[in-house]
Design a protein around this nucleic acid. Structure first.
Lengths: 242, 242
DNA sequence: GCATTTTATCACCGATTTTTGAACACGCAA
DNA sequence: TTGCGTGTTCAAAAATCGGTGATAAAATGC
């Protein structure tokens, strides 16, 4: 529960997606984005967000339709977003199953406050139905990641601490094993923005993480480099509670 | 659940109280009203409302103060109401523990929609007491916490008194061992509101608690700092009656 | 083989976060 | 009023993180 909350931002305006991603990342949320319903569905499957920010005006299915669709099989908190401050829209959104509603242009601070308030409220719910319960440990190679204590446990039950970024990075890999992850994706997960050209910081993180894990870039057993495409987690992953 | 929901309206303007009472009654809610904090407290005792609509400008204690007070011992949904549409107010209200916020003059339809949305969200909460009998003592490291006398007992049966906040804080940790607890969660437990940005008071409490326990932040045996995520109780906990 | 691009790793440094003592603020009782 | 218990804010110091640039190493293309 000390974990970062996942927020999914659905908006067709790239500027807003980026603004929000960065702002929320800075405030300790893990952000993913989608620009339309199709992409949203994909993201919903990939990682189960704790909250969705949903624009109304979208290409393809509009926000109302998507909201309804989400509600068919999930109670995830939804905040609607719209350029149009028409009351009818607002009421419609709320009646359709959204939890809150903010008009553009919005103040990021207020949005953040509303996100917090809603997560606080929704938190109690998930408590009873441990549907989205995240496993305590994730095993791979001869390591165990303690997702609560944010550290690694080796074969001899010794603990190795992880820094925030290392933990996030490893979590990202464990959530997507056997999938090439690009630098952009990593940067997106870590900072909520794409990687800059010539940026070395991600390599350095990888290097540090490999060092923690005792993995060798030349003969990798855990994380393999895919030249030109990013990195690949090649060890098997298994969830346990002890 | 087939019952009508109880809504408590707190506002000093009689016209608004009556308007809301009538409108909500028409829409199948059971309404009670209060014109200030004193009356509110009375009504809270009389009948336990399912939702509170709380004006900010009130004679005596203002809405913020009342909201905080309510949150000390209840999670009842709260919608704040105000003539002033200042963003700072809005954010403050939400941070203090309110769930939603509407500016006057408001549309009754929208208010109703927000009430519905909030009740829908809050409905899952069965906060009917987690009344598991509490053990008299909780042992950890070389300490014993006396949950009745609110003090600590060391190996030599000497007692160390704890201040109110320290006791609450330690209890929180003992109830969630091996789990990273964020500053927000701590503040929530201590004051019923999330931590403000740059607030250092929780750190200071932690520092004092560690001092009481003889724990060292640099080489912790009891409470570990998880940078960016909060604090973590790492000692084993065991309940006894003596 | 050689040039070019991409990746690995090191050491350094600035920025951020945490710790902690001390001063301050508040309510309460004598 | 004064003193006391409690909790918060301030500020300086310490610890830690994570990014940058340099340089080496590896991979790729010619």
């Amino acid at each position: 529960m000390g974990d970062k909350k996942q927020v999914l931002v659905v908006d067709d305006d790239q500027a807003i997606r980026e603004l929000l991603a960065e702002y929320l990342a800075k405030n300790n949320y893990q952000v993913s984005t989608a620009e339309d319903g199709v992409e949203m569905d994909k993201k919903l499957l990939e990682n189960r967000p704790d909250l969705i920010i949903l624009d109304i005006m979208l290409p393809g299915d509009d926000g109302f339709t998507l909201c309804q669709r989400i509600r068919q099989d999930s109670n995830v908190p939804i905040i609607m977003l719209t350029a149009n401050s028409d009351e009818t829209d607002r009421v419609l959104g709320l009646e359709i199953g959204a939890d809150d509603y903010i008009a553009k242009p919005f103040s990021p601070r207020e949005l953040l406050a509303r996100i917090k308030a809603l997560l606080r409220r929704a938190h109690f719910v998930n408590d009873s139905s441990k549907s989205a319960a995240k496993p305590r440990y994730l095993c791979f190679a001869n390591w165990k990641l303690d997702t609560q204590q944010h550290n690694l446990v080796n074969e001899n039950n010794q603990r190795v601490p992880l820094t925030g970024a290392d933990f996030q990075l490893l979590s990202l890999f464990l959530a997507n094993p056997n999938t090439a992850i690009s630098r952009d994706q990593i940067s997106q997960a870590l900072h909520g923005r794409p990687a800059f050209a010539n940026e070395r910081s991600i390599d350095v993180h990888l290097s540090r993480l490999r060092q923690c894990l005792g993995d060798d870039a030349k003969a990798p057993k855990i994380i393999k480099t895919v030249r030109g495409a990013g990195y690949l987690f090649i060890a098997n992953v298994r969830a346990t509670e002890q």
